[in-house]
């Protein structure tokens, strides 16, 4: 396995040489770099304000937030909001939709860029290779709003391209986006269209760093092209695969609010209502802060559990993890 890729994943976890500075050394270093501490003060303030204060703010999930008393003064109510959510008639539907959508997206969206990268890696450097790369990651730059409107235009009954093909072949015209059973597929495959090329960049870069001697050796041993892909290419991108899988698992339930929300319509909500859209509607549209903060916290905790689980699994299976 090449050194670059091997070191790469480990580098995420490695934060720097272990600090062995004694207290006196620390003071001396701080005096020496006092200007840098002033420079860093502003961004650190940003992180405290916009990342850590909200974490303290999750306490409203255990309180009844009243606008007058504020976050800290409102009365504690324990797990009331959580119990309310668990008993909510939509609870299982939300969990089911969220899990189904995100697992489906992961199952299709995770391997797709790996396959693309492995294939691109087999091409000779030339016009076609560059064209494939340049074209496949262009859609990454399309905004979510435009992407969703493209989906709507393509799938629209009557004027959409897909419907034209169907009617031309003698099928009935369908309102795709109003069909709950098609929602997840539309979501997942439009994501594949938009992001596969971009996500493949990482893998292509890793494959470019594979030691050529490995290929030479494999050739002498009479390995076929496919065998080289499986036994050399795949193991060399394994650390990055593990890393991205763990990170993706951690984001599993945070799956694209923006796109789901824009794709939603009254006809498909039975499949498209997920935890994050529900939090937005109940919390910000109906201003039911505490309840929806509880739902959001529940979501975050499951995410945290999943990332720890995925990391544990990755460590067990491949010996590398994110942390």
């Amino acid at each position: 396995m090449s050194n670059t890729t091997n070191a790469s994943a480990a580098a995420y976890a490695r934060i720097g040489p272990p600090g062995q500075t004694s207290r006196r050394g620390a003071l001396r270093q701080m005096r020496r770099h006092w200007q840098l501490y002033i420079v860093i003060a502003l961004p650190i303030t940003y992180f405290i304000l916009f990342k850590y204060v909200p974490i303290l703010g999750v306490q409203i999930a255990f309180k009844d937030l009243s606008p007058k008393q504020g976050i800290w003064g409102s009365p504690w109510v324990g797990f009331k909001h959580f119990e309310e959510f668990f008993r909510h008639p939509n609870f299982w539907m939300l969990i089911k939709n969220t899990l189904f959508l995100s697992l489906y997206a992961l199952a299709v969206g995770f391997p797709a860029p790996i396959l693309l990268a492995l294939m691109i890696n087999e091409l000779r450097n030339g016009l076609f290779k560059r064209a494939v790369q340049m074209v496949t990651y262009a859609p990454y730059f399309i905004s979510t709003v435009v992407m969703v409107s493209m989906i709507l235009l393509f799938l629209a009954p009557r004027i959409g391209a897909i419907d034209h093909i169907r009617t031309a072949l003698g099928f009935e015209s369908i309102n795709f986006i109003g069909e709950p059973s098609l929602f997840t597929t539309i979501f997942v495959f439009s994501d594949v269209w938009q992001f596969t090329g971009y996500s493949a960049i990482i893998y292509i870069a890793a494959l470019a760093g594979v030691n050529p001697q490995l290929y030479e050796a494999a050739k002498l041993d009479g390995a076929s092209r496919l065998q080289k892909m499986i036994h050399i290419d795949l193991p060399s991108i394994m650390p990055i695969m593990v890393l991205l899988l763990v990170l993706n698992m951690g984001q599993l339930l945070n799956i694209g609010f923006e796109k789901v929300y824009l794709l939603q319509n009254p006809l498909n909500t039975s499949a498209s209502e997920i935890i994050s859209t529900y939090v937005y509607k109940v919390g910000l549209v109906q201003a039911n802060y505490s309840f929806s903060a509880a739902v959001g916290l529940f979501n975050s905790l499951i995410n945290l559990g999943l990332i720890l689980l995925a990391n544990f699994g990755a460590r067990r299976a491949t010996g590398t993890g994110l942390f």
Partner: peptide
């Protein structure tokens, strides 16, 4: 001095967040 600690502080925000409502508040 303190860069290890600060890096952990940053990584933690990638893994855990307060969620939409506390952010909005």
């Amino acid at each position: 001095y303190g860069r290890t600690f600060l890096m952990y502080l940053l990584i933690a925000t990638m893994i855990f967040s307060g969620g939409l409502i506390p952010y909005y508040l």
